[in-house]
C-alpha cells in the first residue's frame, strides 16, 4: 500500500509540474490565438506594470464594448520600444493594430532610432495630458519657483538636474525650463526612468527634477520631494495647490500627451470608429476611477485635433534639438 501511495505522490508531483507548464503556455500564448473575429492587437512599447501598460489595460474593457470586438494587450518592450514602433510602421492598415505612446514617439529619431517616421503612424485619439513640473527635495531652502530661480542664479555654476536619457522626454522638459528661466543646468542621465531620477533627487546627487507629478506621486505623498510649479496652462490633479509657471511669472509650458495610434493609411470610417471607441472608453466610470487613483490627468482629443498637436510638437522639438546642437 505504501509503495502505491508513493507512486501516486510522485505522479501527482510530475503532473503538477506539467500542469503549471501547460498553464503557463496557455496563458502565455492565448494572446496570439486568432479566433475568427480577428481581435485588435494593442501594442504597448513597455513592460508590464508601467504607466503606459496600466492605461492601455484600463482602456481595453471600454473599447471592447464600444467596438464589439476583442482587444488584446501585447507588451513589446524590446529595443526600448523600437520593435513595437517598427511593427506599426511596417504593418498594413488592415492588420488592425493599435499602439500607445507619449511624445516619446516623436523623440525616438533623436534618441538613436532614426528609422522611426511619424508619417507612418496615424494618430487615433489622445487620452492623457500630463505635464512637466519643477520638483526639489522636501528640505530644499526654497518653497516657490522664483525663490529657486533666484537662488540658482545667485549661486552661479550649474544646477544638477536629472533626466531619463539624452533626447528623452524629461531631458527636453528640463531644457525648456532652463531656457525660460535662464538657469544653467548640468544634465545627468538616469536611464531607468522616473523612479531612478527621483531617487537621485532624494539622495542629493541632483538638485532638481523636471518630471510629471503623476510619476512623482509616491514621493510627493511620502513627503520626500515638493513641487514648486507645473509647466502647463492649468494645474495638476495630484498637486492642485501648486501654481503653474505662468501664475508665478514664468512663461513656459511642457505638456505631455499620451494617446492611441494606428498604422497610417487606415480608412476614414475605421478611424472614426476607433476614435469613438476611445472616447467612449475614456468616459466610463471605471477608467475615470483608474485615472483618479493613479493621479493621471485625463484629456480626450479626437484624431484630427490630436494629429494637429502631434505635428505642431514635432516642429517645436526640431527647433529645440536644432538649438541644442548649436
Amino acid at each position: 500500500m505504501e509503495r502505491m501511495s508513493g507512486k501516486v505522490a510522485v505522479c501527482g508531483m510530475v503532473l503538477a509540474a506539467v500542469a503549471l507548464g501547460a498553464a503557463g503556455c496557455f496563458l502565455g500564448t492565448k494572446e496570439e490565438a486568432k479566433p475568427p473575429a480577428q481581435p485588435i492587437v494593442f501594442l504597448i512599447p513597455a513592460g508590464p506594470g508601467g504607466g503606459n501598460d496600466l492605461t492601455v489595460r484600463a482602456l481595453i474593457p471600454g473599447m471592447r464594448q464600444a467596438l464589439g470586438q476583442e482587444l488584446i494587450a501585447e507588451n513589446k518592450p524590446a529595443g526600448k520600444g523600437a520593435v513595437a514602433a517598427a511593427e506599426i510602421m511596417n504593418g498594413r492598415p488592415e492588420d488592425n493594430k493599435l499602439y500607445f505612446n507619449s511624445q516619446t514617439v516623436l523623440l525616438m529619431p533623436y534618441g538613436g532610432m532614426p528609422d522611426v517616421k511619424l508619417e507612418r503612424f496615424q494618430p487615433v485619439a489622445q487620452v492623457v495630458e500630463d505635464m512637466g513640473a519643477i520638483i526639489v527635495r522636501q528640505d530644499a531652502p526654497y518653497d516657490t519657483l522664483p525663490e529657486f530661480i533666484a537662488a540658482a542664479k545667485r549661486r552661479g555654476g550649474k544646477i544638477r538636474v536629472a533626466h531619463n536619457g539624452v533626447g528623452s522626454l524629461w531631458h527636453l522638459a528640463a531644457i525648456r525650463f532652463s531656457q525660460a528661466a535662464g538657469v544653467d543646468f548640468k544634465y545627468c542621465a538616469y536611464t531607468s526612468g522616473g523612479r531612478q531620477m527621483l531617487g537621485a533627487l532624494v539622495d542629493g546627487e541632483v538638485e532638481v527634477c523636471v518630471i510629471s507629478p503623476s510619476e512623482s506621486k509616491p514621493f510627493i505623498e511620502a513627503k520626500k520631494v515638493k513641487v514648486l510649479a507645473v509647466m502647463s496652462d492649468r494645474r495638476h490633479t495630484v498637486v492642485p495647490n501648486v501654481p503653474t509657471c505662468r501664475e508665478v511669472g514664468l512663461d513656459t509650458v511642457f505638456n505631455v500627451w499620451r494617446g492611441v495610434f494606428t498604422t497610417a493609411g487606415v480608412s476614414e470610417e475605421r478611424l472614426n470608429a476607433l476614435d469613438a471607441a476611445v472616447r467612449q472608453a475614456v468616459a466610463t466610470e471605471e477608467f475615470q476611477a483608474f485615472a483618479r487613483n493613479n493621479g493621471l490627468p485625463v484629456k480626450f482629443r479626437g484624431h484630427e485635433e490630436f494629429k494637429r498637436i502631434v505635428y505642431e510638437q514635432r516642429e517645436m522639438y526640431a527647433k529645440l534639438f536644432g538649438e541644442i546642437d548649436k
Binding site: C25, G28, T29, N75, K76, A78
Partner: peptide
C-alpha cells in the same frame, strides 16, 4: 522556449 518568448513576446 515558451518562457523565453513570454518575457517580451519576442
Amino acid at each position: 522556449v515558451v518562457g523565453t518568448y513570454g518575457v517580451q513576446n519576442s
